[in-house]
Every structure is written in structure tokens, then in C-alpha cells.
Write a protein that binds this DNA or RNA. Structure first.
Lengths: 95, 95
DNA sequence: AAATATGCATAGAGTAAATAGGTATCAAAA
DNA sequence: TTTTGATACCTATTTACTCTATGCATATTT
């Protein structure tokens, strides 16, 4: 969900995603590369992402991921599922 | 976290926990027994819970779980970790 | 020249959830 | 009266994911 949301802002490569999530979360979240890359593979396979090998501004080979239409649809669904679950959790915890 | 929070209200047996979480979450959450009972075993082993076999008002053998002091401590820690993570997620999603 | 940061990725271990069973008692309905 | 539904316990297997550890390569800074 966070990967899709991040890529909706703009396409990014893996390492940039790690930085982006860490920064926007005010250092509260840390995505390990060992979790991220397998997740990106799964999401490519699911059709939620596209990937293009490119050459970065620093002259380095990078793999840039973009969100697809199916990915945007999935993000909406996933977010609403997440919010429902969260509401449930908060009801139980607040009780 | 939800199990500990529920048992902090009052000791309950497994089946009652399922009902309680379903009801307080306004049917948003459903805890499968196949997830609950193994979780209760793990939590007993961790020392967060106590269990006593009892006879219910309906004359049935039930295993009643209570939260321990260590369980209460863990609940506080776990809740604060959860809230930090949630804040991080929301920052990323709101971005 | 060496260390640090950037960038890709996989292998293996560990953990947990979901699925799918299995047992037994009790009350109510068919 | 039998059988269905609710109550109550639990485990085994599969599936899935995360974390740790590791490997490679290039660019930049010290």
C-alpha cells in the first residue's frame, strides 16, 4: 500500500523508495531492502507495477518502477480494507 | 494486542474472545479459531497470560485466560509501538 | 587508497496467519 | 428422536511474508 502510494506521486527506483518512505514517515518506518525487492517482484507479477531499466542522473543503472492502472485500482481497494481493519482495531483497543 | 486489551477488561475463554472482538469491532474483525488458539499458546508461553480450566455457568468445561502483570506491561509497549507504526503509515499515505 | 553511499538482488531462517480439519457437549427444532 | 446449530476446545499443513545475511557493482568522499 505504501509502495503504491509512493509511486503514485512519481516513479522511483527501489533505493529511492526506501529513502522516501523513511523520510515521509519521519523516520518511524524503515523498509529493509530484503523486504522491498521481493515485494516489488510480487507486485510486478501481480500487474500493479511496471519497471524500466534506466540510467540515472548520476550515470548509474537504476530500475525505475511505476504504478499501473491496475495498481491504482488495487491501491484504492487496499486502502479501504486497511481503513476498515484499522477502525475495527481502534474500536477494540478503545473499548 | 487486542487479546491483551480484551482480557484486561475481564478474564475470558477463547470462544468468548472471538465473540467479544467481533462485537466490539462492529463486525469489522473476525478472529479465526485456528489463529486464536495458537496465539493464546504463544502468549501463555511468553508469560503474558494465565489459564485456568473452569466449569461455565452452562456446565461446560472452559479454559479461562487472564492477563498477567507482564502481559499488562507488554500491552503498553506493544500499543505504543503500534501507534508509532500507524503514525508512520498515515504520514506516508497522506503525503 | 580506503571507506561510505548508492544501487541491484537472492538465499535461508524464522514467524505467523489462513485453511482445513478433528473432538465433544448442549439445546432446540424437525 | 434424531439431527442441526451453537458452544467450546485444539492441531496439522500450507502459504506467505519479514528479517537477517550475503553478494555484486559503481560513484563519491575522506
Amino acid at each position: 500500500m505504501m509502495i503504491l502510494r509512493s509511486l503514485k506521486i512519481k516513479p522511483m527506483h527501489g533505493y529511492a523508495l526506501v529513502q522516501h518512505i523513511q523520510q515521509t514517515s519521519a523516520d518511524l518506518l524503515n523498509v529493509e531492502e530484503g523486504s522491498l525487492y521481493p515485494a516489488l517482484q510480487r507486485m510486478l507479477k501481480a500487474g500493479w507495477l511496471d519497471a524500466q531499466w534506466q540510467t540515472s542522473s548520476t550515470n548509474r543503472r537504476v530500475r525505475t518502477y511505476s504504478i499501473t492502472a491496475a495498481g491504482k485500482k488495487h491501491l484504492v481497494e487496499e486502502t479501504s480494507r486497511f481503513e476498515a481493519m484499522l477502525k475495527g482495531i481502534q474500536l477494540v483497543l478503545a473499548n
